[in-house]
Design a protein around this nucleic acid. Structure first.
Lengths: 131, 131
DNA sequence: CTACAATTTAGAGCGTACTCTAAGTCAAGA
DNA sequence: TCTTGACTTAGAGTACGCTCTAAATTGTAG
């Protein structure tokens, strides 16, 4: 129930997560992913838990969180439950940033709608000639 | 009514738009901003129309539009009304991208809320010991 | 056993969007 | 007039997040 031994290759994980094999190794190197277990002491074998973590990383990235903060978060995660308060703080800050960002995008969206409307009117009725 | 002669210095435009003077010159170099008029034939003097355009550029950037597309849009703008249909197409594509992006952020936001909740429960009731 | 494909590491390279430097010109106040 | 500071250009440098290469090893299908 804890760590299923599904043992996927890096190739399979790349397909499953949308990250390239290069990026998967890069993420591990910089500590975003803990050192992955090896089969035959050389080739990586990922567990389904590992996949879950990588998918979470993908979501953090998609929110615009910089790699450095993700590294900090991963480090806290490794420290276990003692780091829960700090992780909550990070998540709250992220929540705030994302909400702010969404609000900003919605503002800009309004302008885009407005411009589309105006431009379409101008296209239908070119150079509104004084009657 | 067309181009007010408010004539701001690059310094003032930087303050007004939030871009650095470096970035303002960079944007002009790469064609995001049309060649700005000069006072005494060397120093740039920006009109309020120029400011308006730069603020629009800022909004495009904030939506995540890459510089290359912004260059294309700026070029269309320079061509005048004949390019209106193409600009509308670009704006529609942008609208789609922004809407998709907002939807994605809202999905991720849900997960963030969920995690905050779970973690806070764990903090209040540490290591739920089997009764 | 032979190929060929996948994996490994360390490290170099790349695309985007700035950001800064150097060397010189210009302007405005004391 | 002197000095201080803003402005100019061309071009170099930087930060971020990958992305790729080289050279060696390992795995697998026939």
């Amino acid at each position: 129930m804890d760590t299923k031994n599904d043992k996927l290759t890096i190739q399979q994980v790349a397909e499953a997560t949308g990250l390239s094999v290069h990026t998967l190794r890069y993420y591990e190197r910089i500590g975003l992913i803990h050192p992955i277990g090896r089969a035959e002491n050389t080739h990586r074998r990922y567990s389904t838990d590992d996949i879950g973590w990588i998918e979470f990383l993908n979501k953090l990235r998609a929110t615009g969180m910089p790699i450095q903060q993700m590294q900090a978060y991963a480090e806290l995660q490794r420290q276990g439950d003692v780091s829960l308060p700090e992780r909550v703080e990070m998540l709250k800050e992220l929540r705030h940033n994302v909400e702010t960002h969404i609000a900003e995008l919605q503002e800009h969206l309004k302008l885009i709608y407005y411009k589309i409307e105006i431009y379409q009117d101008l296209i239908e009725e070119p150079t509104p000639e004084p009657a």
